[in-house]
Design a binder for these strands. Structure first.
Lengths: 107, 107
DNA sequence: ATTTATTATCGTAATATTGCAATATAATAA
DNA sequence: TTATTATATTGCAATATTACGATAATAAAT
């Protein structure tokens, strides 16, 4: 079906899954790495750097923005994308909580 | 197209994305949480617990196994699934390395 | 041997994702 | 105003994912 039955899971499970899903594409990983490499704000050097078409990059940026992982500041006709460091740490903590609380073994 | 251009990304980026993708479904989060809650090995109580059809759960378990996050031990006609703790920690470390090295801000 | 129980696999329908060309939007430059 | 440049949105084709019924495979129980 392609449709996830989110109703049968709790909010935390869905939130975790959504967060993981945003990170589940190499282009989005590459974009985040590239943004963080630049000491200054970058814009659509991303398109040239990554090697995907501009609309595709724009779409990936939108998904990263959807969980506030990055923020875009308009500078004239360019847009400067930066990692939202506060949210970044928040998400890292969220994932670590999941990994720390979900690991009791049995066998 | 639905097809990811993995060739244009490096191995680490693809590995990270694949790892995130396995975790990017609430059913798989729920399965991991449920397995970890049981002090003893569990089997297909998972099907009853989660509320998805047996083939669906089986498919999700296969995906979790694909990155060695869980291991299944055959016990007669039942199969006991456990978290692969060693791999679990490995993946947590992998994700933390990503989060720690990718966070320099610019704006 | 036959049944029963547990799990895996196959096939398939419905929906989602990826990627891009075409186009729209917005801001500066000429 | 009319380009030009940078980014976003739309529409669509190709592929992937999710979910499940049907069925196969395996092992214990009768």
């Amino acid at each position: 079906m392609g449709i996830t039955k989110t109703q049968i899971f709790n909010a935390k499970q869905n939130q975790l899954a959504t967060t993981f899903k945003v990170l589940a594409h190499p282009a989005r990983i590459a974009i985040l790495e590239y943004i963080s490499l630049q000491n200054a704000c970058i814009c659509n050097d991303i398109v040239e750097e990554i090697g995907l078409a501009q609309p595709t990059i724009s779409q990936h940026l939108k998904e990263l923005k959807s969980i506030d992982l990055i923020k875009g500041e308009i500078e004239g006709k360019k847009v400067c994308y930066c990692i939202n460091l506060e949210r970044w740490k928040e998400i890292q903590a969220l994932l670590n909580t999941f990994f720390d609380t979900t690991k009791i073994n049995c066998c």
